[in-house]
Design a protein around this nucleic acid. Structure first.
Length: 425
RNA sequence: GGAGAGGUGCCAGAGUGGUUGAAUGGGGCGGUCUCGAAAACCGUUAAGGGUGCAAGCCCUUCGAGGGUUCGAAUCCCUCUCUCUCCGCCA
């Protein structure tokens, strides 16, 4: 949710921000509703004030035993007028909120313009794609002998589901635990096991609702399967006023994520890249405004460490305005090299949301000086997507015989194994 | 699933129709005292919004939404959440 006062004072900036994102200019509509709301509210307040004074006078008169029937009749008119004006104000206010709830976060100034992923800006890279002396196989062909079972996924659940067995199952677990330990032990994140079914309020807080209802799965009792642990982790801060000393808060969680992939028909239909259910290690930071810029760099670096330790080549991109998520103010994507596809694929997305989510969920921090509170800033980043890390690991570390070399950092999580071969358990 | 209790300020906890945004205690902050600290004492301490150059004035908020009333934290209805007991259960 953007700040309506900012919109009121900078209508041109609002339109520029929306246009930069490829959305419609809305300042005229926002300002019209805002003006209507404030005018009705002011009139209501004047009527209400008069009404309260009149009622108090009646109370005092009655206390003295005087007759107050004339005053009581007079106040009835005020009451009707006040109620009508209040309804008018509420209607305008609700309409304004409904509109604001659908507007994406204005991009930061240093976010490059652009319509889609073609306009993202290269920032840096690490490692170089390996030159294979043989034709590299896909993670599907490599994984199936090791226990990656797409047939079982289809049988049990349908397309975009997979079962993992044996070594692949263990590898998935090892990857997740490695990432979790890394962020907890070296990056100062607090481990959380959040609920993965959440209320609509939580989905609204992080921005999945009201606009992207069709992207997530909902239970019959109205709860939502989280599309990312960003939802429960960030909403831990909802309805809270922090002391400055409480911040920054850093959370990390390993959870399944569920996405309907409604708009992705036909994309990545084979393999593990795009599933309805996948595991992800997610980082969330709750910080004060002055900390948020540095925190985004820190979080991105933490995600990069995962890929470095797994010895996977990757690059970092700064997303253009048109490719950013709804709630993001600035986003870095990490793309890992996928040999079989011969291209880089997204494996992590680290974003600062500024105060956009905080305003939706009521997450505040007291000012260090003076009275009052400010909204906190929230950040989230994958650290990283486990299924896609598995894809990258299998393909990048494959050998000609189909076995998979295990990077040193991961070996302790696999009982010291240095490779996976189809002959093993 | 059955039965019951309850949601009040940073926390605990009063308050069942009339200047109650709300007693009291704790905590926080400021001060007195002290070489310093503790203790004691004094003072202070909600958020959001409207209006205004400002000081200020005003409105809203006692889980949420409706209703009764001249007047609601207090009465009524609906919803929601929490807790307790019983049942069931990984």
């Amino acid at each position: 949710m953007l700040d309506v006062r900012w919109a009121r004072e900078h209508p041109d900036a609002l339109d520029a921000a929306m246009t930069k994102r490829g959305a419609e200019a809305v300042s005229a509509a926002v300002l019209a509703l805002d003006t209507k709301r404030r005018s009705a509210q002011t009139r209501f307040q004047e009527l209400q004030s008069a009404r309260r004074d009149a009622s108090k006078a009646i109370g005092q008169a009655k206390a003295k035993g005087e007759d107050a029937s004339a005053a009581m009749a007079a106040v009835a008119k005020l009451k009707d007028d006040a109620a009508a004006t209040e309804a008018e104000a509420k209607q305008a206010s609700d309409a304004l909120d409904a509109l604001l709830a659908t507007l994406p976060n204005p991009p930061a100034d240093d976010v490059p313009p652009g319509a889609n992923e073609d306009d993202n800006v290269f920032v840096r890279e690490n490692g170089t794609p390996r030159a294979f002396a043989f034709e590299p196989k896909s993670h599907i062909d490599l994984g199936e002998p090791l226990g990656l079972d797409f047939e079982a996924g289809v049988k049990l659940s349908g397309a975009r589901f997979a079962a993992m067995r044996g070594q692949i199952a263990r590898l998935e677990r090892a990857l997740a635990h490695f990432m979790l330990d890394l962020h907890v032990q070296e990056h100062g994140y607090a481990e959380v096991r959040p609920p993965i079914l959440v209320r609509s309020e939580a989905m609204y807080g992080t921005g999945q609702l009201p606009k992207f209802e069709e992207d997530s799965f909902q239970t019959t009792d109205g709860r939502w399967l989280i599309p990312t642990a960003e939802v429960p982790l960030t909403n831990l801060a909802a309805d809270t006023s922090f002391e400055p000393a409480d911040l920054p808060l850093r959370y990390v969680a390993h959870t399944p994520c569920f996405r309907s992939e409604a708009g992705a028909a036909g994309k990545d239909t084979r393999g593990l890249i795009r599933m309805h259910q996948f595991d992800k290690v997610e980082m969330v930071s709750i910080v004060s405004a002055d900390q948020s810029e540095a925190e985004l760099e820190r979080m991105t670096a933490a995600a990069e460490t995962v890929l470095q330790r797994l010895e996977l080549p990757y690059r970092v991109l700064l997303l253009c305005a048109g490719d950013m998520g709804f709630g993001a103010r600035k986003t870095y994507d990490l793309e890992v090299w996928v040999p079989f596809q011969n291209k880089y694929r997204e494996i992590s997305s680290c974003s600062t949301c500024g105060d956009f989510q905080a305003r939706r969920m009521g997450a505040r921090v007291r000012r260090t000086e003076g009275k009052g509170t400010d909204f906190v800033h929230t950040l989230n980043g994958s650290g990283v997507a486990v299924g896609r890390a598995m894809v990258a690991l299998l393909e990048n570390h494959q050998r000609e015989d189909g076995s998979i070399g295990i990077p040193a950092a991961l070996q302790p999580y696999l009982g010291g194994m240095t490779e996976l071969t189809s002959g093993q358990g």
